[in-house]
């Protein structure tokens, strides 16, 4: 399963980004291979519709689960329609690496 974690930077020790549509980066974690890849969010500074465009990206990437701090109504609408699970993690004191470790531990 492909899981995306919103991130403030492009490294494993970057802090988890509470924003989804306007997250700085996305960490794409492939559960099977254990490979992680960081993608810059091209829509982070768009004036409107960032949630929509970011969700579009998630569908294109074939992601099944997204972990972020919050999802706006437009993002929710698209993610729901494509059965992408939304996980809300309401704290930004953890790094992306730590979140992935937690996922592995499950």
């Amino acid at each position: 399963m492909k899981i995306v974690i919103s991130s403030e930077g492009a490294e494993m020790n970057s802090v988890f980004d509470l924003r989804f549509g306007r997250a700085a980066y996305f960490c794409v974690y492939n559960e099977e291979s254990g490979i992680t890849e960081f993608l810059k969010n091209e829509h982070a500074d768009d004036q409107g519709g960032a949630g929509t465009k970011t969700s579009e990206k998630m569908v294109e990437l074939g992601v099944q689960k997204v972990i972020s701090g919050d999802f706006g109504p437009k993002a929710k609408d698209i993610l729901e329609r494509f059965n992408i699970q939304m996980v809300i993690l309401p704290d930004n004191n953890r790094t992306v690496g730590e979140i992935i470790e937690t996922l592995k531990g499950k």
């Binding site: 409107g48 929509t52 569908v59 294109e60 074939g62």
Partner: peptide, 15 residues
């Protein structure tokens, strides 16, 4: 950003 088109799943819609 009002149009969503996702070619891989043949999805196209105007918000």
């Amino acid at each position: 950003n009002a149009i969503v088109v996702i070619p891989t799943v043949k999805f196209a819609e105007v918000n």
